[in-house]
Amino acid sequence: MSEPHGVREYLLAFADDEHLMGQQHTEWIGVAPFLEEDLAVSSIGQDELGHAALLYELVLDLEGVEATDLALDALAFDRPSHGYRCCHLVEYTTNDWAEALVRHWIYDTFEAMRWQLVAGSSLPKLASVARKALQEEAFHRRHADALLDKLLDAPEARDRILEALGAVYPLVEGLCEPVEGEAAAMSAGMAAASTADLLEPLHQAIEARFGRSDSIGSRTASLQNRQNRRTTRSADFDPLLQRMREVLDYDPGAVW
């Protein structure tokens, strides 16, 4: 696989994860458990969408396309579903706030590690986006940790959180599964290590946060078992993309 193609795939996987995660957070506006949480979670969603936009810009740079709003929208919203490179964790439609919170913590823990990997990227713009994002991620984690500190301390809430962990946990491995082009992207100096190398530290962080829980069950030691999860879409993807495109589809040619 050629380097530019590998780099594109790598950036696209990162951008698509951020885009979908941001969208998922924003869907809590108005329905989060309390008003202050509405604001916090949508603010975090905005940050993730901001990261996605910056990463999509890098993809357009690579293609030699000027990063106009229309070009960014086309890349973010107009691909056929097989053109997306997101993981199934960010596609997943959560059943309740507990699942959303657990995913928020797991995703942001992983995301901070992922930004670390590109903080010294050979692509200067990517390295500079990483510096900005890492500052924001510290607060995202602090928000999720502050909630979990309180909830894991109360027996009933703890049960619900661990149940939610059980639902979300099977999707963790796919989060760390790299795209096919990652090796080429790494040889171009894009990242310091493979996304797959984050699986073990992520497992350890999850255990440190939630304890050795029955809901986790047996964990996979490494990513032996590649399933090309970033090139196949889960059942939740299409409805999600439809919700994301809802306004855009009213008038596809509209200029904002």
Partner: peptide
Amino acid sequence: EAATDELALVLAREA
């Protein structure tokens, strides 16, 4: 409204 001091800080930052 917040459940802990830490949450109050985190939520005040966003609000």
